[in-house]
Nucleic acid binder design. Structure first.
Lengths: 166, 166
DNA sequence: TTAGGTGCAAATTCTTTGCACCCTG
DNA sequence: CAGGGTGCAAAGAATTTGCACCTAA
């Protein structure tokens, strides 16, 4: 498993180098580290989280560089964002076709793959709205951990999707 | 068409009244107007947009009331949010099962229905991650308008998903 | 060498909160 | 009439920007 993850990350990193070179981007330490961090996690972190992780190895990076770098990667098509728009951003370096499970309570997001779901057909009515670049399934529910917590603290009102401030 | 939209909105509004009453919420003008505004649009607006719309009829509302009301409605299950988490919020009063098309360029989001997609099966591997409350399809692409613009202004670099500041 | 990239700090933008008054139930 | 709800103004977060220095190519 570890082996295949390393391979996958190497492949992603290589792709990054190629695309960056073609675009005339400089391969700075910061960019490499930020991309490496994102490519190596399944967590779909936000900028702040990536910042903290990269800061370990590179104590002088700044948060704004992380932001700038992530958006640069995004504009190059090297990472995607979760959520429909620019705001509320969490990043994803997984460019393989995949789907998402997200917990409505704690915000956890996990990728999953499914050959069956990959094959889903987009209705013609949608094609009339615009061109289709991608179609994936979003599953919402309670993750295993939150199910357990919920059972413990049985509050009648929903704890609300909000809750978790940083 | 107009007729059926009115009916739909009346039904939503009635549902709101019922749920609010049961929860012991007061039915203030502000809440009614804010909900009505959301129930009557297909646009999945953010708080600011709703605020501006409601302000027309009710010049004294404040933006913070809009925020508070939307989250209250959300906690009661009367509206859902687009995007996986609390951040980056756009709201939706459509509780019927539906899917989304969103434009990667301008951020437009449209609902669509599909009996076929409603029936999609969530893999067992996902059920192991947690309980499944909902599964829907997110389609990303370029909307008709942006396709046209793109063709006109043929810039080689992507205009980026960002772009539109308020 | 040199243009693009970075860190820093300040500026913006977005959202939430404290408090006194108001209005629904 | 009472307690939740609202508006206002101010606080807090999150994200972006201007600028001088730095470094990959």
């Amino acid at each position: 498993m570890r082996k295949s993850e390393d391979t996958r990350n190497d492949r992603r990193l290589e792709h990054f180098r190629t695309v960056a070179r073609e675009a005339g981007l400089k391969l700075t330490h910061q960019r490499l580290e930020i991309f490496r961090e994102l490519a190596g996690t399944e967590e779909h972190p936000d900028a702040e989280t990536i910042f903290r992780a990269v800061q370990q190895r590179m104590p002088t990076v700044s948060l704004d560089t992380v932001y700038r770098t992530l958006w640069t990667l995004h504009d190059l098509g090297l990472v995607t964002t979760l959520g429909p728009r620019r705001e509320g951003v969490r990043f994803d370096a997984n460019l393989d076709r995949h789907h998402h499970f997200s917990c409505v309570r704690c915000g956890l997001v996990r990728d999953f793959e499914s050959a069956e779901l990959d094959g889903l057909r987009v209705p013609d009515s949608v094609r009339r709205l615009g061109s289709v670049a991608d179609a994936h399934v979003e599953v919402r529910g309670l993750c295993a951990t939150c199910q357990r917590d919920r059972r413990t603290s049985r509050d009648p009102k929903p704890p609300a999707t909000r809750g978790e401030r940083r």
